[in-house]
Design a protein around this nucleic acid. Sequence first.
DNA 1: TATATAAAATGACGTAACGTAAGCTTCAAG
DNA 2: CTTGAAGCTTACGTTACGTCATTTTATATA
Lengths: 252, 252
Amino acid sequence: MIHINKVGDLTGVTVRTLRYYDKIGLLKPASKTEGGHRLYTNEDIKKLQQIQFLKKIGFPLHEIKNMLTSSEWDWSESLKSQLSFVLKEQENLKKIELSLRELIHGIALEGEENWVAIQKTMQLSSKDKEMKQLYRESVFKPREIKLWKKVPNMTSDSPDSLEWIALIGQLKRYMMEGPKAPKVQNIIRRMDEKRLEEFEGEDEFLEKLWKIRMSPKQSEKLSLYPIDQNVLEFMEQAYAFFLAEKNNPQAE
Amino acid sequence: MIHINKVGDLTGVTVRTLRYYDKIGLLKPASKTEGGHRLYTNEDIKKLQQIQFLKKIGFPLHEIKNMLTSSEWDWSESLKSQLSFVLKEQENLKKIELSLRELIHGIALEGEENWVAIQKTMQLSSKDKEMKQLYRESVFKPREIKLWKKVPNMTSDSPDSLEWIALIGQLKRYMMEGPKAPKVQNIIRRMDEKRLEEFEGEDEFLEKLWKIRMSPKQSEKLSLYPIDQNVLEFMEQAYAFFLAEKNNPQAE
DNA sequence: TATATAAAATGACGTAACGTAAGCTTCAAG
DNA sequence: CTTGAAGCTTACGTTACGTCATTTTATATA
């Protein structure tokens, strides 16, 4: 016969919990002292461990009670339904994770102080994702759909996407220095390097992508994070200058 | 000025919820009629949509309230901590998923009627998984560790593992017909085919595995689902008979 | 054996985010 | 002016306990 706090020590559950389980009839102690103190047996401990396990895998107490009392319980049934529930929960959390990453990257781009990023993402997220997939397929060729995966997007945590976000963020910061500023040109050079690494020879695709980028509405349809028009234009100027310099190095 | 049930139609939240948000000060309607009916503006609707989004990604209402009121809120901070929380939750659900699969497969093996499978798995799950990894590394060679992944286990949902479980389950059902029964021999043949497909030429490894299998204690240490001793022995007999038949087809 | 003290018992309130029901009041149409 | 629909407030129920507050029992010491 084991006292209540000893049971707690053995299994890690609190005294309060044991009293609660007693009250709801989930685990009644085998006996009591004449004064009313609860006394548990080894059997009770085993049952408690089963309860703990079933609770851990997500069953509510009232269902655990049924499971352990009714001998005719359809274990297979409830385990499978619990499994499908768990799978759904995981999908859901995956979506939440993507939204969070989008927001975090958005703030990295826009800076924390202004609400714009948050607003944009919250609007984006409220729309239908599947629609976008369909639209995407209508605009690009099948082969280009594969390339699409390499386009940096706000939900990815790949190093590549992160660097793109960082580069664009820096570009915004240095915009007031003009497109020819060395800092800006360094960023553009790095972008060009990455472009070559990832999209070498895919000029047609890049051309299409850039046109879409220049139209905020189309960008949004494709769930591209809407980059400010003036940033895009600035980028185009800086890139033009970069190309000119490259072809004619010593000129000034 | 929009009436409360219209707001519900527009955003999908219930009237009760809107009244609740009013009460806790999360979303107060811009004005009220003299009779006390709530009137919302377009601004309110926008705010409500933000609330919905933040709720969807897992923030509690009181935190959302802070986020939307205090202008100095550290968005980056709370988004990141929420992200890490979500990641932890996903890990947790993954573990739960594995436990559930283990139980479901256990029942497929032992049959629903007897508690044995459930008991066994519940005991297995309560122990430390990392310990097992270490033990495994001490028993097998590095090269064999890779092979280990192909050993059917109770938590996998790969077709291969499922078939092994099904085969062993059937074997148990036909045990009373003796090791020479055609049904039993068919199962053994299928097992042999699979063995060849997956472990061809790895005789040393299989030998080791089999020895461990014959010892319930060692099996458990490696988190192998403990198969009953008599089933294993029966399997050995049936397999011996199978080999004999194969080498000497027409004898009887 | 009386008493001090630890530990146990019961009862009640609080939690998060609403759902649901009861009973009363306001709004808008006819 | 009536009437039915919709709105209002109040309050209890939900999950699985945590956290008091108060009282009673068990046990060790004087």
